[in-house]
Simulated assay, not measured.
Amino acid sequence: MVDLYVYYKVRDENAARLAPLVRALQSRVIEAGAARLLRRPGGGDGVQTWMEVYPAVPERFADALAAAAGSAGFEGLVEGPRRVEVFVEFPPCA
């Protein structure tokens, strides 16, 4: 299992339209309550940084998420690419 982090930019004027689309995507691809949608505080130039967090998902989850996001209606609402980062737990110390 891995933790998946997806971050991207959103213009202030698109935030209210995009948030329900992201939450709908999250409810379709993962158990309710497990996914999180975060926003970096502050921001500037009318652009926000958002992050979707998917804890303890299978390694192949990123492919399924990318496919689902492609048809989620995000076109024109996200500035630039959605960047994906994968993190794993440190192994326990012996």
Rank of each mutant, 00 (worst) to 15 (best):
residue 80 G to R: 07
residue 14 N to K: 13
residue 81 P to F: 05
residue 20 P to W: 11
residue 27 S to Q: 12
residue 29 V to N: 03
residue 21 L to V: 04
residue 23 R to E: 11
residue 91 P to A: 15
residue 37 L to C: 02
residue 64 A to R: 12
residue 26 Q to F: 03
residue 41 P to E: 07
residue 50 W to P: 05
residue 57 V to S: 09
residue 39 R to W: 08
residue 6 V to M: 09
residue 9 K to L: 13
residue 21 L to I: 01
residue 15 A to D: 02
residue 60 R to E: 11
residue 84 V to Q: 08
residue 37 L to D: 02
residue 54 Y to T: 01
residue 38 L to V: 01
residue 75 E to P: 01
residue 53 V to F: 13
residue 90 F to A: 15
residue 19 A to I: 15
residue 57 V to Q: 10
residue 92 P to W: 15
residue 40 R to Y: 04
residue 16 A to Y: 07
residue 4 L to I: 14
residue 19 A to M: 15
residue 52 E to Y: 04
residue 83 R to N: 12
residue 72 A to T: 04
residue 52 E to H: 06
residue 23 R to V: 10
residue 10 V to Q: 07
residue 87 F to R: 12
residue 73 G to W: 00
residue 11 R to M: 10
residue 45 D to C: 00
residue 45 D to T: 07
residue 84 V to H: 06
residue 22 V to G: 02
residue 5 Y to H: 12
residue 28 R to A: 06
residue 93 C to M: 11
residue 4 L to S: 08
residue 91 P to Y: 14
residue 24 A to D: 14
residue 4 L to D: 05
residue 56 A to E: 14
residue 65 L to C: 03
residue 75 E to Q: 13
residue 58 P to W: 02
residue 51 M to P: 04
residue 73 G to P: 04
residue 77 L to A: 03
residue 2 V to E: 08
residue 28 R to W: 07
residue 59 E to Q: 14
residue 46 G to A: 12
residue 9 K to I: 00
residue 94 A to V: 11
residue 36 R to S: 03
residue 50 W to M: 11
residue 16 A to R: 13
residue 50 W to C: 05
residue 54 Y to W: 09
residue 27 S to A: 11
residue 60 R to W: 07
residue 53 V to N: 05
residue 57 V to I: 10
residue 39 R to S: 11
residue 64 A to H: 08
residue 70 G to W: 09
residue 69 A to L: 00
residue 69 A to V: 00
